[in-house]
Design a binder for these strands. Structure first.
Length: 447
RNA sequence: GUGGAUGUAGCUCAGCUGGUAGAGCCCCGGAUUGUGACUCCGGUGGUCGCAGGUUCAAAACCUGUCAUCCACCCCA
């Protein structure tokens, strides 16, 4: 394919039949959000670069699409919804009812190398709650996530959860210097991928000793037979033993309490009731710098494509954009990855989704044109998506083939006989049966 | 940003140690002028990703470039 007719790197065109599924997935997410009482907002696709880059880390900053407008303002395309949300909240705080529960579904942009499930332009769906420090928020968001994923038939998945406060405690207890915390966490996050030796190597490269690694691992080496609540208690005792600093100790204990509360209640009464999908993992880190409390990630157990939803608490967010401090927590769904998983799980899904067009109307000669136009309008007013043939001198065989290829279920034929009797021949393309009925009757059977 | 693989018809791919392209599916027409998924017959369709280079000769070899996939990085 020549360069000119290719979409730019990392972007894609979607065919009508793909759009049916995409729309369905996004509508399902939208409906779930609404069912949980979130209201929809929108904000610009681009913001001032300075705003986007504020406290997002240099790695992410490299991924922002930057451009100048004609007045030389430096702008960037949003790469996620959290920083735009911070700005949105700061701008509109007085008009918003708190706690502010909002959702947004839209395109975000990242200048990075593409891979399966990774694009430069992709949809994200975010639900956030600003204005509460309560763990009830986490409970609600996780509940929402499970509810949505069940509606999407996502198969087997797992919610991995951890808390930044606990991580800070373990880091401190393992004797890792505060200044090297980020590097240590980044390496530890990769444990499953690069193994013990890999992590130690990264530790060394960042001037952190193997001893620190061993201490860290010893601290989180908990009896696998214990349930998460007991693991958390055991971990708490160990950390408290090694941490000298009182404030860090308190923070850690806070984190332990937060997680215990979330896991216990979610299993007891939330959407996770009876499902063993929430799992504490002391090695879950998550990238973005702004998380301050519980963090979580949702992954498919059937298909390895990375996490398809993630989130956490970032109590310092709105402060960063000039508002009074408020508790904030959110979850983000990777729409593209969800679609990839749904498609992967059911390869024939496109065939099972019918066209948004319900009826195809064909007339056989010019004398039936008026009658066909009126019939089409009749169905449209009834709320039935109807396509009227635009071919001249229609060939009935070809018309049927066309409608069938487009996945339209019904075809209405209007010929001389139909026009004179003010009826139509309605054919169901799946069952191949046809009946000679009035438009009213046809509308009933199509609905 | 780094490393690797790949790029041939709308799609999936074949094309040997260099001798200027083929199959299946799709599509179009006909058998079948008010009835489509099967069958049969015929047909359209390719600057071999793009640009250079080597050669009498390049889809093939070399270089660059663009894109896709994979592994890093990071993340939805």
């Amino acid at each position: 394919m020549s360069k000119l007719i290719q979409p730019p790197k990392g972007t894609r065109d979607f065919l009508p039949e793909e759009m049916v599924l995409r729309r369905k997935v996004m509508e399902t997410i939208r409906e779930s959000f609404a069912l949980y009482g979130f209201v929809e907002i929108d904000s610009p696709v681009f913001e001032y670069f300075e705003l986007l880059s504020r406290k997002c880390g240099s790695e992410i900053e490299k991924e922002i699409y930057v451009f100048e407008d004609k007045a030389k303002r430096k702008l960037g395309l949003r790469f996620e919804f959290t920083s735009p949300l911070g700005r949105y909240y700061a701008t509109n705080a007085e008009k918003l009812t708190k706690p502010f529960k909002r959702y947004i579904i839209g395109k975000v942009y990242r200048y990075e190398n593409t891979q399966a499930g990774r694009y430069r332009e992709f949809y994200q769906a975010d639900a956030d709650i600003i204005g509460s420090y309560s763990m009830n928020v986490e409970l609600e968001l996780l509940d929402l996530a499970v509810f949505t994923l069940e509606k999407l038939s996502m198969g087997n998945y797992e919610i991995v959860i951890n808390d930044r406060k606990i991580l800070d405690g373990i880091i401190n207890a393992a004797g890792i210097d505060e200044s090297k915390k980020d590097a240590a966490l980044r390496a530890l996050d990769k444990t499953a991928k690069i193994g013990e030796a890999g992590v130690i190597k990264e530790f060394n490269e960042n001037g952190i000793g193997e001893g620190n690694y061993r201490s860290f691992m010893r601290l989180i080496d908990l009896d696998p037979g214990l349930d998460d609540a007991k693991k958390l208690t055991a971990l708490k005792e160990r950390i408290n033993e090694y941490v000298k600093d009182e404030s860090i100790k308190n923070k850690t204990n806070e984190g332990i309490e937060e997680l215990s509360f979330i896991i216990e209640n979610e299993r007891k009464a939330g959407a996770c009731e009876g499902l063993n999908v929430i799992k504490f993992d002391p090695l879950l880190v998550r990238g973005l710098g702004y998380y301050t409390g519980p963090i979580f990630e949702i992954k498919s157990k059937d298909i390895s494509i990375g996490s398809f939803a993630a989130g956490g608490r970032y109590d310092n967010l709105v402060e960063l954009y000039g508002s009074r401090p408020e508790g904030a927590c959110g979850i983000s769904f990777g729409v593209e990855r969800i679609i990839d998983i749904v498609t992967e799980r059911d390869k024939d899904i496109f065939k099972s989704l019918s066209s948004p067009v319900r009826l195809y109307i064909v007339y056989l000669s010019e004398s039936e044109r008026t009658s066909a136009l009126k019939t089409a309008k009749f169905f449209r007013l009834k709320g039935i998506n109807a396509e009227l043939s635009v071919s001249e001198g229609p060939n009935i065989g070809k018309e049927i083939k066309y409608a069938d290829k487009k996945g339209i279920e019904y075809i209405a034929v209007i010929g001389g006989r139909e026009a004179s009797e003010k009826k139509l021949t309605l054919k169901n393309l799946k069952t191949r049966k046809e009946i000679f009925i009035s438009a009213e009757e046809a509308a009933e059977s199509i609905k």
